[in-house]
C-alpha cells in the first residue's frame, strides 16, 4: 500500500470512530470551542454549561484529544413548560499537530467553561536561530 493511501485510510478510520459510541441514551452535543496557540502551549476553551468537574473526562493519547462530559437532568418532580435544551453528553475530539507534554496538562472548569492548557514539549517549541557571519 502506498504511503499516501495509507494516510487516507487512517483519516477515514478517524472520521468514522470520531462519533462517540453511546453507552447511555440521550443526545450528544458539540461544545463550542476556542483553540489558540502560543510558542509554549496550546489552549482549548470549551463552553460546557451545567458540567461539574467530576462529570468531565479529558483524554489525550497519540495526539488525539477527547473531551467528554455528562450533564444530569433537572429534578423529575417538575413539569416542563418550555424546553430548549436537554441533558445529554458533550463530546468533542481533536487531533493535535504539536507534541504535547502530557505531564504538564492543566485543566480548569469555571462557570461552565473548560480551560485546557496543553504545554508543548521542549523540543517542539520554536527556536530562534542566529545566523553567524564568517
Amino acid at each position: 500500500m502506498s504511503n499516501e493511501s495509507r494516510t487516507d485510510m487512517q483519516r477515514v478510520e478517524q472520521t468514522l470512530t470520531s462519533v462517540p459510541e453511546q453507552t447511555r441514551p440521550g443526545p450528544v452535543y458539540m461544545p463550542a470551542v476556542d483553540i489558540f496557540e502560543t510558542d509554549g502551549a496550546i489552549t482549548v476553551l470549551a463552553d460546557m454549561p451545567g458540567v461539574k468537574p467530576d462529570q468531565l473526562e479529558i483524554d489525550l493519547r497519540e495526539n488525539v484529544l477527547t473531551i467528554t462530559a455528562r450533564v444530569t437532568a433537572a429534578p423529575a418532580n417538575e413539569t416542563d413548560v418550555l424546553r430548549e435544551y436537554d441533558a445529554g453528553t458533550f463530546f468533542r475530539r481533536f487531533t493535535l499537530a504539536e507534541t504535547i507534554d502530557q505531564a504538564k496538562i492543566d485543566a480548569k472548569l469555571a462557570d461552565g467553561v473548560l480551560r485546557l492548557e496543553l504545554p508543548k514539549l521542549e523540543r517542539a517549541k520554536p527556536r530562534q536561530i542566529t545566523v553567524r557571519t564568517g
Binding site: T15, V19, P27, V28, M30, A32, F91, T95
Partner: peptide, 8 residues
Amino acid sequence: RAWPARPT
C-alpha cells in the same frame, strides 16, 4: 450544535 458533525 448536535452531533454528528466533523470533529477533526
